[in-house]
Structure formats: structure tokens, C-alpha cells
Amino acid sequence: MNMKANPTWISVCHIDEIPMLGSRVVEHPSGNIAVFRTANDTVFALLDHCPHKGGPLSQGIVHGESVTCPLHSWNIDLKTGQARAPDQGCARRFPSKLEEGQVFLSL
């Protein structure tokens, strides 16, 4: 039998509390989480730690569905957490959703 665990969704902020093409940091015991907002109000959440040298992704530049790390300009895909070629590595991703203006994370 294939049983899927129901995720626990936690409200972290309102969409207006995240700058357009920016992020907001949510503190978490396993490390800070950067919650990103794209130009079309899609939200994504990644561990605030670049897979290259640990730079704060929350301070990077959001473009499309990517963020550019402020330290060494690695481009990280917000959907998957994967570094874009030629770079290799992955930032931990957290499921996120937007409902009625409220941002939720599954931790």
C-alpha cells in the first residue's frame, strides 16, 4: 500500500510582506529559509544557503524563476533548487503555496 503523508502547512507571512522580485527570511531550526516572490506573485522557498560557498540566497537578485547568488553569481532554479549549468549543486527546497494572499510553507 502506498501511503502518502499529508504535509503540514504553516502560514509564514502575507504576499505583500515579500518585496516583488525579492525575498523574506523565515527562521527555522535547520537553517534560515528564503521565501521568494516572482514578478507574477509565484512563491518559492529555499534554504538560505547557496550550494557553492554558502552565500545568502535571500540577498540575491530574482529574475524569472531563478535567483542569482550575491557572492559568486551562481543562478539557482527556484522550482528545483538546482544550480543552472555549468554550475552544479542544489539548495534544499521547501514546498510553498499562496492562498488568498497568505504564504504557506510545508516544513
Rank of each mutant, 00 (worst) to 15 (best):
G64V: 08
A39G: 10
E65G: 00
V26D: 09
W9K: 11
V67R: 11
C13D: 07
E27K: 11
L78V: 10
E100D: 15
T80N: 06
V62D: 05
A34Q: 06
H52S: 02
P70S: 06
D87Q: 15
K97H: 07
K79Y: 13
F94W: 11
L47E: 12
E99K: 07
L78N: 06
I61A: 06
L57K: 05
I76R: 00
K97C: 12
A39K: 12
D77K: 13
G22S: 07
K4Q: 07
S30W: 03
P86M: 08
H72T: 12
R93F: 03
Q59S: 13
A34V: 00
V43R: 02
H52D: 08
H28I: 02
A45W: 08
G89H: 02
L71M: 12
L57E: 01
C50G: 07
C50T: 13
I33A: 05
P56G: 01
D48Q: 06
D48N: 09
D41G: 05
A45I: 10
L21K: 06
V12M: 07
P7C: 01
K53Q: 15
A91F: 00
V43A: 00
D87S: 14
F44Y: 11
D41V: 03
D48W: 09
G31N: 00
V12W: 03
I61V: 14
A45N: 08
V26L: 04
T68H: 04
K53L: 14
A83C: 13
L46N: 04
M1T: 12
M20T: 14
G64F: 08
T8P: 02
C90A: 13
A91S: 05
L47Y: 10
H52W: 08
D77W: 00
H49Y: 14
N6W: 12
S58W: 05
D48P: 03
S66R: 15
N6E: 14
W74P: 04
N2P: 02
A91W: 04
V67F: 10
F104D: 00
I76S: 09
H52M: 08
H63I: 14
A34G: 01
H72E: 06
K4N: 14
I18M: 12
D48F: 03
N32H: 10
K79N: 14
G89A: 02
K4E: 02
T42M: 15
P29S: 07
H49Q: 10
E27F: 09
G60C: 02
A45H: 06
P86G: 01
L107V: 06
L57S: 11
E65V: 13
R92L: 14
D77G: 01
I10S: 13
H28L: 07
F104M: 04
H49F: 10
C50D: 03
G60L: 02
G81P: 06
I18F: 04
